[in-house]
Design a protein around this nucleic acid. Sequence first.
DNA 1: TTATAGTTTAACAAAATTGTTAAATAAATG
DNA 2: CATTTATTTAACAATTTTGTTAAACTATAA
Lengths: 200, 200
Amino acid sequence: MTTEEQILQAATKVFTQKGFAAARMDEIAKEAGINRALLHYYFRSKDKMFDIIFESKFNEFFAGVYGLLSSEKSVLDKIEAVVDLELKMLTKHPDLPIFVLNEINVNPERMLKRIDRDESPISKALAKLDAQILEEHEKGIIKKVSGFSLVIAIMSLCIYPFVAKNIIMGLMKMDKEAFTQFVLSRKQEITQFLQNGIKL
Amino acid sequence: MTTEEQILQAATKVFTQKGFAAARMDEIAKEAGINRALLHYYFRSKDKMFDIIFESKFNEFFAGVYGLLSSEKSVLDKIEAVVDLELKMLTKHPDLPIFVLNEINVNPERMLKRIDRDESPISKALAKLDAQILEEHEKGIIKKVSGFSLVIAIMSLCIYPFVAKNIIMGLMKMDKEAFTQFVLSRKQEITQFLQNGIKL
DNA sequence: TTATAGTTTAACAAAATTGTTAAATAAATG
DNA sequence: CATTTATTTAACAATTTTGTTAAACTATAA
């Protein structure tokens, strides 16, 4: 692994754990096994480093949604596929959602620039989903629900436990292992729950 | 309103919007219409001010859960009552969940001290809920589900949209009004969704 | 080997931020 | 009115953090 990659990896760890404001260049350097001077040698400033990392994490966070809306599956199958994809992603990167969501919350203007500039492919994809839902509704398969509302429901059920991870672990006296197990044990439950919710 | 209250109100606004690390004493002072010296005159340090506010917001955040678990309603009615309560609370304090959850995420040890010391009344309440679910299940009313899993589902569906508020608003080009309307329009949907999910 | 790029060290500059202090002033209270 | 309490001002100390720099050193590649 190149030094640049080591630094980015360390910075990702520290930024996603602490957030931009609480992250320290010193800690990133230590985590990367180098010194502060070299951090600035590769990336001029904390801001620039953060921008790179946030951009990447933001995309990672949204990858699931794009996947959901663009595939060729039936609505019911899409639900299953997305829950599966999201939970896999989340167990790998449990700190991702709270990091992305909080940075956006603290500084929406700065963090959401990218949404305007690419004309929101998501809203187009959502329109498509709505059309598909209508289609399947007329075939008598599912209820007539809002695609957006459905997507929010899926995301809520998958993501929220990770956002509240530490509270849950604290309350239920779980360790990391137990938490992952808990989340995965709900996979089928969530999927069926969502599917039954829109089945006719 | 006393000066102390003014300061706390201003501090609450700034802390919940920016989080501890990004919050500035200066901004709090300006928001309260006073100067920094007076901030320290009332509350010795940023840390102490934050502790007071976090404690209060933490309790506010959990009030809903306690309400849910302790009432005398049937499980199905509890679902409706809690969704109602949560959504009311959240439209009033939309920044509350991401603030509390993020601070806990950034610093779990410090923020979760309070959980150990009061012997977690929630876990007792959850045990009670499980008993109630079993009871109603044997009467043929509802499925045999985990009370904890149910509570997580309720919280997920209510809270997540607020955690992702700015993304949603950005993507769907909503303003605050539209967002509130959107969230409230889902109230019945969520309630029925949850109820149907456990009905026999 | 020589030049180049990568890296460390250590000191330091610059900026931002928190916290303190003393003196002056305003407001409230007995 | 006199005294206490609240508040402002303004300066400043202390600390933390970011960013810079020069010099030395190491490794690598031409």
